[in-house]
Simulated scan of single mutants.
Amino acid sequence: MNVVEAEGKALAEIAQVSSLPELEEARLRYLGRNGIVNQFLSEIPELPRQEDRKKAGGFINAVKGNIETALEKKDRELRQKSLKEIDRSSFDVTAPGLAPQTGSVHPLTKFREFVRDTFTKLGFEEVYAPHLEEDEYNFGLLNIPPDHPSRDLWDTLYLEDGRAMRTHTSNMQVREMRKRKPPIRVMTFDRCFRYENVDPHHSHTFTQFEVLYVDKDVSMGQLRFLSDLFLKAVLGEKTRTRFRPKYYPFVEPGVGVDALCPFCEGKGCRICGMEGWFEIAGAGLVHPQVLKNGGIDPKEYSGLAWGFGPDRMLMIKQGIEDIRYFYEGDLRFLKQF
């Protein structure tokens, strides 16, 4: 196929084109980098005489210009035709539109707001403590010296400068006692970190909630009241609680707070592991040494500390079997809330 034949074929094809995508295909076929016109241009250097090369170049460029003109003319025709079709089409402005997809608040964030509102009504103020913490606030001032065996329970992650990624929200206790004078009512809801294997019930990053109340004559009765009030608000009015003796170095006495399984009401089921009860929280009266470390006289004042894992409590409330769902960002899970 020579140049003249290629021009005739190109102009004929362009005249028959009926859409913009077809027109683009024709343009690439004839004027693209590997198109027919460029192939002719690449053969010019093979001509033996300078005069012939000059004539061939001028003629091929003229053909290229004719094809470009035809393409531009056809492009205008097709666009005008498209606009006319739009003008003729009907559009019902009263028809309902497509509803956009909307997001929702993360279940842990919802739960945080509920917990914050509940304890704010009881006079507690939300406070924060560092995630990267000095060893004394995370352990030492909480009655856990360097050689204390209970340190092994926290699986702590340390930085090279000696600071730790806090293992619990209790690192706020002495810091807040040193800032304030009794009565002290503070709460914190934040993340903690431990060197743990990830499984359906454990994670290296998790959330804790804790309250600290320091005043005159604070007793286990008030601790029981807080536990019952909050757990009934979360799990329902039928919820029963119990205290079991449990050891924590920074409280004395210490208790584990259990709640009756809301699904089987104590009979035993798959969700509660056939126990009938869930361990919900850890609590106790603040150890006198911790009060001293916070600058408070334990002979005049006493205090309580009460905390739980919101992840676990929400798993129990919603029947969720894997803690990792909260942190994976899977929309199939999050859209259920």
Rank of each mutant, 00 (worst) to 15 (best):
103 G>Q: 06
114 F>L: 13
185 R>Y: 09
152 D>S: 15
208 Q>N: 06
173 Q>M: 14
149 P>H: 07
105 V>K: 13
199 D>R: 03
198 V>A: 11
190 D>N: 08
207 T>K: 02
208 Q>K: 04
209 F>M: 11
202 H>V: 10
165 M>F: 15
144 I>L: 08
222 Q>L: 14
208 Q>P: 02
161 D>Y: 09
152 D>L: 14
222 Q>P: 00
120 T>C: 09
177 M>D: 05
129 A>F: 09
158 Y>E: 12
153 L>E: 14
116 R>H: 13
164 A>W: 02
191 R>I: 09
95 A>R: 14
174 V>L: 04
95 A>K: 12
118 T>M: 12
120 T>M: 12
90 S>K: 14
104 S>A: 12
158 Y>R: 13
182 P>Q: 11
181 K>W: 02
95 A>L: 12
104 S>K: 14
134 E>S: 06
116 R>T: 12
210 E>F: 04
103 G>V: 08
147 D>N: 13
214 V>D: 08
170 S>P: 01
152 D>V: 11
203 S>P: 12
124 F>T: 08
169 T>Y: 06
220 M>V: 14
152 D>Q: 15
185 R>D: 09
102 T>V: 13
107 P>W: 03
128 Y>Q: 12
222 Q>M: 14
149 P>A: 05
220 M>Q: 05
222 Q>T: 09
149 P>N: 03
194 R>G: 08
188 T>F: 03
158 Y>G: 02
113 E>T: 09
198 V>E: 13
169 T>M: 05
115 V>H: 01
199 D>A: 06
115 V>A: 13
102 T>W: 07
111 F>Y: 11
108 L>G: 02
143 N>C: 07
207 T>L: 13
188 T>M: 13
215 D>E: 07
135 D>Q: 07
127 V>H: 01
98 L>P: 00
185 R>W: 07
201 H>V: 15
153 L>H: 10
99 A>L: 14
116 R>Q: 12
178 R>L: 15
219 S>F: 03
219 S>W: 08
172 M>C: 09
127 V>W: 03
207 T>P: 00
192 C>L: 05
154 W>T: 15
174 V>W: 02
167 T>Y: 04
96 P>D: 10
164 A>Y: 00
203 S>H: 15
184 I>A: 03
151 R>G: 13
141 L>W: 10
195 Y>W: 09
211 V>P: 01
208 Q>H: 06
186 V>H: 01
125 E>N: 12
116 R>C: 05
174 V>Q: 02
164 A>T: 09
140 G>H: 00
226 L>K: 05
226 L>N: 07
106 H>W: 06
148 H>P: 07
204 H>R: 03
183 P>N: 03
